[in-house]
Nucleic acid binder design. Structure first.
Lengths: 341, 341
DNA sequence: ATGCTCTGCTAAATCAGTTTAGCGACGCGT
DNA sequence: ACGCGTCGCTAAACTGATTTAGCAGAGCAT
């Protein structure tokens, strides 16, 4: 690629100055005593030759590469990753950096390979991302440089960027309360494993805490809570069917994610019940499907893009070293209304 | 990152040989006359020191970086990109390469930036990917090196990797024929713009050609074809409702993508019709939603992962310079059955 | 006139590899 | 004994930038 690129030596020659002078001018070094005229000549020469510095040569000397490694378990290949990468890409571009992407797929060999590739290329920092919000162990080899965890925390308490699941939980509950729902609110998607083991999920527990907190503050308690083995549509479907068999039908359900909500929609459709007339539904994630459902599903969006962006900012601009929580905005759609009288 | 790494000079010193010797041994150069014992000593020294070559230094001399640029319009941030990137990542790793990801977002300024970043870093090749299968103009600046188009073609007829949409269209039609559907097959998702302008879509025309070819071969013609302004669920919904108002109800519909099919499902559900009892549905893409629908949606999968992989293979191993079509496998689910008697 | 400082600039070292050119020792044929 | 080829290896150049150390000349004070 790119044959015949002008080098710094070419620029210097054309400007009638030394490489040293050219380098200093182009890097905008303070305290150099080069004349205004010298500056002019260097800039002009660089412009005329279309000079662009050779990154390899520069980083050989400076050990800076203007490159960030984006390492993930399997996030890069899932639909959830898009926003994370896009946000990181944007923020990186604004800071004249570029993203090197690798995936470990949870495999130790792949991880070792990814880390070697990264160290060999002397990246300026690492963003270590997880698909599901969770706690994880960071390979010690990358701790030599700046690291930011994305959608994850670690025992070493490295700087990290997380969605504000607890806030989202509270918001979901408050949204229902504001519509007038009180004692007939149900939750679909309780899951002991997810709630207890931070290495599996941090979201489950946080969302639940938020929901409970907001309801407690209003003096309301949950009608019932459905447990699900996973957060997939079929489990939401099953849970909703069971719920409909109860003597007291809920006026609203909070689903722990959109896929469960989708399953719940299916069960409601089969039962001939309408949303939000018979029952309101609210959920988390803002999966693309939320906008496609009829009626549109109200859901607290995972702010992927903002999270990716934030990770780069913390990495390059420096953060306070702690956790950075990104708010989950509510996407208000037609699935929530006041309970039937 | 990576302080105190051993250099080639360290290895040479430890092996009691010159840098030249060490370099040649480690690169497995043929025709060198270094003794077997020298080889041993170099390998041992490298091993003991945990030596890893400095990529910047190497590429400064060789102009090779073991890095591939993955440039896309907006593909990297969409749910469709996952597989493309994952496949490329896998194939790249197998060849000891790494992926530099950039996005143009269809913006000329961003594109220029992306290309400069790429040229500055002297990547070994470029994969230029599009979100929607289409024809596009490749920026001339990257034509100096190897380029492969992914999910796209170009007027310059560069090597490219495309899904076999025509084959998939034929397969969809044949699947329905095999179940016994004949003269009551409808298509949802015709779209003049997509079919006519290759800069918008190549898939629309190809899928349709495949469908028509297979039906013609069986002496069958389409019952009707619904036009849609876009391929979104709401348009599938509208099309299906219109279809159900016709005197002759179709026994099967082929939707141009899964989102249309999702909309069709919604309309069928509301009309109280069951799939596949009253009507079979088949589609294209294998969006995650296809597996979540009840009943599961039969669909020809976009082989993203295989496409990403193929792009890297063509780029690094060399292709025949033409288009490489990747088959779209049918994901057979419960949405297709024999027509009601 | 000498010494000193300041200005404006450059030579050369450096980063860590690859590659070219070639050197000394040895064996062999004549 | 001399020339030649082969073997096993190395010195030094080279890649393109940054950075350190320092030089020549002007201005000024003594």
């Amino acid at each position: 690629m790119g044959r015949e690129r002008a080098t710094l030596a070419d620029v210097a020659r054309r400007a009638g100055l030394s490489k040293t002078a050219a380098s200093m001018v182009l890097n905008g070094r303070e305290g150099t005593r080069l004349s205004a005229e010298a500056h002019q000549r260097v800039f002009a020469a660089a412009e005329e030759l279309g000079y662009r510095p050779n990154v390899a040569a520069r980083s050989l000397r400076t050990r800076k590469t203007a490159t960030i490694a984006f390492v993930s378990d399997i996030v890069a290949t899932t639909r959830f990753a898009g926003g994370l990468i896009r946000g990181a890409l944007d923020a990186a571009r604004e800071r004249d950096h570029v993203l090197l992407i690798t995936e470990t797929q949870g495999d130790a060999t792949f991880e070792r390979y990814a880390i070697e590739a990264i160290l060999d290329r002397q990246v300026d920092g690492v963003i270590y991302a997880a698909m599901a919000t969770r706690r994880l162990a960071v390979p010690p080899a990358i701790l030599g440089g700046p690291v930011v965890l994305l959608n994850a925390t670690s025992p070493e308490s490295l700087p990290c960027v997380l969605p504000d699941d607890e806030g989202a939980g509270a918001m979901a509950a408050e949204t229902l309360l504001a519509e007038g729902h009180r004692d007939r609110i149900a939750v679909i998607g309780r899951n002991r494993q997810k709630e207890r083991d931070p290495e599996i999920s941090l979201a489950a527990d946080a969302r639940l805490r938020g929901i409970r907190g907001a309801l407690a503050a209003a003096g309301v308690s949950l009608l019932t809570e459905s447990f699900c083995p996973e957060w997939l549509p079929e489990h939401g479907y099953d849970a909703m069917r069971t719920l409909l068999d109860r003597p007291t039908r809920p006026s609203a359900v909070i689903c722990m994610n959109d896929r469960l909500a989708f399953g719940a929609y299916q069960a409601l459709g089969e039962a001939g019940l309408t949303i939000p007339g018979d029952l309101s539904v609210i959920s988390f994630d803002d999966d693309p499907i939320a906008a496609w459902l009829r009626p549109g599903l109200s859901t607290a969006a995972l702010p992927h893009e903002e999270m990716g962006r934030r990770a780069v900012e913390v990495l390059l601009d420096g953060g306070d070293g702690g956790a950075s929580f990104v708010p989950m905005p509510l996407r208000r759609r037609r699935s929530v209304a006041a309970p039937a009288a």
